[in-house]
Design a protein around this nucleic acid. Sequence first.
DNA 1: AGGTTATCTGCAATCGTTATCAGTAACGAT
DNA 2: ATCGTTACTGATAACGATTGCAGATAACCT
Lengths: 342, 342
Amino acid sequence: MSTVTITDVAKHVGVSVATISRHLSGFTVRNEEKIRQAIIDLNYRPSAAARNLKSGRTGIIAIVVPDITNPFFASIVEGAEGAVGEDRMILLVNTGDSRQREEKALAQLFGRVDGVIMAPLTEDEEGPSFFSQFGLPIVFVDRVTQDGEKFSTALTDNAKGATIATNHLIALGHKKIAMISGPLSTTPGKKRADGFKASLKESGLPCQYFIESDFSEEGGYAAMSALLEREDAPTAVFTANNLMTIGALHALRDRGVAVPNQISIIGFDDLDFAELINPPLTVIARDARLQGALAMELMIKQLTNGASTQPEHSMVDVQLVERGSCAPPREMQTIAFNKVDR
Amino acid sequence: MSTVTITDVAKHVGVSVATISRHLSGFTVRNEEKIRQAIIDLNYRPSAAARNLKSGRTGIIAIVVPDITNPFFASIVEGAEGAVGEDRMILLVNTGDSRQREEKALAQLFGRVDGVIMAPLTEDEEGPSFFSQFGLPIVFVDRVTQDGEKFSTALTDNAKGATIATNHLIALGHKKIAMISGPLSTTPGKKRADGFKASLKESGLPCQYFIESDFSEEGGYAAMSALLEREDAPTAVFTANNLMTIGALHALRDRGVAVPNQISIIGFDDLDFAELINPPLTVIARDARLQGALAMELMIKQLTNGASTQPEHSMVDVQLVERGSCAPPREMQTIAFNKVDR
DNA sequence: AGGTTATCTGCAATCGTTATCAGTAACGAT
DNA sequence: ATCGTTACTGATAACGATTGCAGATAACCT
């Protein structure tokens, strides 16, 4: 427990501190064996603080996420963890969706870490980027800020995902398609909403069931409830992230709305239990772990190549996982019936 | 990007470094305003490394968990995050269920952090506790090592939870009750198994469907599959954690076994979507966030009171959340039927 | 044995900050 | 004018490691 330093080891062996230091950094020294033994006997551990001070490196990479209990971000972190390598560690910061905590964290991180992988809360930044003032290497994951181009990024093909989801519903015959969107101030919020709207327009459908929510379970619940209360309710809904999908499903359940009989639903981001619910949930899936790993690789590349490195942009693909929560709209039958009726 | 030090600020203002340092630590100095301005102009940020070296404190508390993608541990982390306070940060280490990574992490953590909150992989430790060799303040959360008594702990009332679950099934009339258990080498694995076995014994029931698994989704799937293949399959099953519950549910679904009609299931740990599956899942729930917060509080107490502090042990309560996955066994009817038959 | 390398060694400076200590200026009281 | 008190300041020694430099030892060759 005592604080045994390199000097103690040197004295114990009878050599200078320089020799011990050299041994530690892998040089061959004369009393190799004696030193090794002394280190064990004294239970010596080099002071990380002193090393940092000399070298200017900490061997720590920070990951800043808005909400660690969101399985998506947990997977990002896990992926990054897996790619971090032997000689570095990860410092996790959970900003809890608070802009204030995000700022404070970034300020505190300076000097404590070699770089920051982050999913910023919002793209809306007044003036020159808030992040430029810190000389820290930054890699954006999942989300970027306005001037994100200047940094390396590991993003998802959001537009494509939204397009696939929307077209899937359109192909099934839906005309009244709703979207429960994330905040348009975030990258995925904006991009997914854009993809949705573009798909509707391309098919000549009006965009009349668009709700901007907040990526939270509660938000999804509220938005779904609002949609269901409309006189002319939609027949299908695209929820822009996992949490809102859960919220929406709760709302549907609470009101006894049958899926996909009365309403079809497709979510962005797969869920662990998507197959367990009734009916199994159709989703747009992506590899979050891979995305986290990519972000870490970009960071490490930047760290090893020095500040001169050009920013790189990687993107993970999305894909449609059809299960059972989407079906043709009930109106299809009604319309057919009407035709016969005439 | 540049590396502006306290000396630069001192020169810029025309005072000594000592004055700047004093200003930074809150003393009143003469050129207050000038200094403040210089700090902004030069964009000076005190070097954390140098401060650490002087003070011996880092302001960082590590949390070591086996698997961050497990929602339970994610909540633990979130709870701890919430209780960490203004002037400290959290360093997350995900050991990925690897003993090797756990050891390495702990060694690397030394000197980098002021304390460690950890959920160790296993209780089985040969010889004197592995952790004693590090002079780090340690708080165990959810799990302990053999000599855990010497450290502060924030645990769950595992025995009580298992007892409630088992008795719930017994009260419904089940005789053939299975348990898909976690590793008996872990605290929750052992304690929950003990509670299960004690409950059976108390009711005079044999313990013939006990499977020791590994707290993973795959493990739960395999265990459930094995149970279903037995000639004399159980009528109820108690799964010892969230992941294994998910795995078991998948196995049931894949084989088309009806819940709770053919088999009842109760899980330890609530799940976000427990209400969404069909039927809604009955579980033993606890407040993981609270547990994480408690662990952090114990750590902070230890840090502020110094090493002299007596270890404290806190425990979070559990409770039964009845939904729809448990019902009386079908045999009840069969038996009645058989009797009539004779 | 002598000379020339090739290795290894210790000394001391350095990283950026804080703590100690002695010192100076300002001010009021005598 | 002198003294004592208060309130601040600057120089300097740590904190524990790394590293360039110069010197010492060993190894090698003729």
